[in-house]
């Protein structure tokens, strides 16, 4: 079929460019859009946000920690805790101080995890949400300390813990002390668990390395967002080790579900209701 208006003379400069604005241009000049890496469709940011930052095709765009808290916690219920902790350059690692400074500016957060108490569907819980904008959500002393304090607080106060993970793993710039955070957080999760506490982990894109090998895998129930990359070793490292290309589905949430390592996949639009239900079913009423 011939394209409509193929032989039409352009009436003005705009038509010559081949595009007519479909929507009134916003006051700033252009409307911000995000292009979906899965279906290539461009969607206005405001429309995306109304749909939990999910494209019509089902692709889940990243959420920052504050957006996640706004969407999962009941309005006004979130009370932040331990936000006074800040990283230091423990082992004088080259370039670390600069990276911390940039990470703070880029993410507008003090560190790669935000903790506090919240209500989800009127169920009180301890909530921690990791922030990928801060050095790829890597775990150093502060992330380890905040997560540990969150579990210790929850144990003392008989609260369930809901934790959203996103992380590139342990933070190289803090050397062995980062590795120790894996044991430290695992110890706190164990104490909470032994005291009968309920821990729900929600794994988001991407969750890898030392976080996968510690508190992300230690939930009583583990959910994951669609298509999230979840694994211990990163795909590039595995490809280099085995010198083979990896299948496309490898290490996705769907792959983990198939292999039996997560309880279910939770699309964002269903998460709040699902988490509320799970929390209310774990209330100790006897």
């Amino acid at each position: 079929m011939l394209k409509k208006g193929l032989f039409k003379q352009p009436k003005n400069e705009l038509e010559k460019g081949g595009r007519m604005p479909k929507k009134p241009v916003s006051e700033q000049g252009t409307e911000l859009t995000s292009q979906c890496p899965a279906c290539n469709l461009k969607t206005p940011v405001t429309m995306l946000l109304d749909n939990f930052n999910v494209c019509n095709c089902g692709y889940h765009f990243q959420f920052n920690a504050r957006q996640r808290i706004d969407f999962i916690a009941d309005e006004g219920s979130f009370c932040e805790m331990f936000d006074n902790l800040e990283s230091v350059d423990i082992i004088s690692f080259p370039g670390y101080e600069g990276k911390l400074k940039n990470a703070k500016l880029a993410s507008k957060e003090r560190e790669a995890v935000v903790c506090g108490t919240a209500e989800i569907g009127k169920n009180k819980c301890a909530l921690f949400v990791m922030e990928s904008g801060f050095m790829m959500g890597s775990m150093g002393s502060v992330v380890g300390e905040k997560v540990t304090r969150m579990f210790e607080y929850a144990t003392e106060n008989n609260l369930p813990v809901v934790g959203y993970t996103v992380s590139g793993g342990a933070r190289m710039q803090e050397g062995i002390i980062s590795l120790m955070q894996m044991a430290k957080t695992s110890g706190a999760v164990k104490r909470h668990s032994d005291a009968g506490g309920f821990y729900l982990a929600v794994l988001t894109h991407p969750t890898t390395g030392g976080v996968t090998a510690s508190f992300a895998s230690e939930g009583d129930i583990i959910l994951a967002e669609p298509q999230a990359l979840i694994g211990f070793a990163g795909p590039r490292v595995i490809e280099q080790t085995i010198r083979k290309k990896l299948p496309p589905e490898f290490q996705t949430a769907e792959f983990l579900l198939d292999k039996g390592f997560i309880d279910n996949i939770a699309p964002r639009k269903d998460q709040k209701q699902l988490i509320s239900k799970l929390l209310s079913m774990h209330k100790r009423s006897w």
Partner: peptide, 21 residues
């Protein structure tokens, strides 16, 4: 810990996490 397809398929991260706990 070994980096390979099988190791990931059988939960390398989980195996380590369980030992820590």
């Amino acid at each position: 810990a070994f980096c390979g397809i099988g190791a990931e398929e059988r939960g390398q991260g989980l195996a380590i996490a369980e030992n820590l706990m």
